[in-house]
Amino acid sequence: MQIFVKTLTGKTITLEVEPSDTIENVKAKIQDKEGIPPDQQRLIFAGKQLEDGRTLSDYNIQKESTLHLVLR
């Protein structure tokens, strides 16, 4: 499924993921596309910060959901 990741600069990254993918996994995909190390990434969905060990389905993230990427 496709999800979108919006950065603070207003750029939107499109990722191909599975509901069973972990947040860690998603961060690795963002690193592949954008070169941002996962340890600098914070992903936010519905106002919650997403934890590395959880999966997209844990957070009920469905196709075409938009996550927000904050760098630390």
Rank of each mutant, 00 (worst) to 15 (best):
D32G: 12
V17Q: 09
T12M: 05
K27G: 01
E51Y: 10
T22P: 14
R42F: 13
L15R: 00
L43W: 01
G47V: 03
E18Q: 07
T9A: 07
I30N: 01
I44P: 00
M1N: 04
K48Q: 15
G53K: 08
Y59Q: 05
V70I: 07
Q62F: 11
T55D: 06
I44A: 08
H68S: 06
V70D: 06
T14D: 05
K6T: 15
A28E: 07
L8H: 13
R54M: 15
F4D: 03
R42D: 13
L50S: 01
K48Y: 15
I61M: 04
D58A: 11
Q40T: 07
E64F: 11
D58M: 11
A28D: 08
K33P: 02
S65H: 09
E24R: 10
L15A: 02
T22L: 06
I23H: 02
D39N: 14
I13T: 15
K11G: 04
P38G: 15
Q31F: 11
V17L: 12
I36V: 11
Q62L: 12
A28G: 07
Q31G: 10
L50E: 00
Q40E: 12
I3E: 00
V70Y: 04
N60P: 05
E18G: 13
I23C: 02
Q2V: 10
K11E: 10
R72M: 13
E51N: 05
Q49D: 14
K11I: 11
G10L: 10
Q40I: 06
V17P: 01
I3A: 01
T12E: 11
I23Y: 01
L50W: 01
P19I: 06
S20N: 15
G35C: 03
I30Y: 03
Q41A: 10
Q31P: 02
D52S: 07
L50P: 01
T7R: 07
K33Y: 11
F45D: 02
I30D: 00
F45M: 09
E34Y: 10
R54W: 13
D32P: 03
Q41Y: 09
D52R: 05
Q31C: 02
V26F: 02
E24L: 10
E64P: 03
T9W: 09
E24G: 06
T7D: 09
V26D: 00
K11N: 09
T9N: 05
R42Y: 15
P19H: 14
K63H: 11
Q41T: 11
K33S: 13
K48R: 12
R72N: 12
K63Q: 09
G53W: 13
L69E: 01
Y59P: 00
S65E: 08
I30R: 00
I23R: 01
I44E: 06
T9E: 09
Q40Y: 11
K6G: 09
S57H: 12
T7M: 06
I23G: 03
L15S: 00
I36F: 11
I36G: 03
I3W: 00
K6F: 08
T12I: 07
T9S: 10
L56K: 00
L69G: 01
L8V: 10
Y59N: 03
V17M: 07
T55G: 04
S65G: 10
E24C: 03
E24M: 15
K27C: 02
M1Q: 06
K48V: 12
T22M: 08
T7F: 07
G53Y: 13
N25L: 11
T66L: 11
I23L: 11
R54S: 12
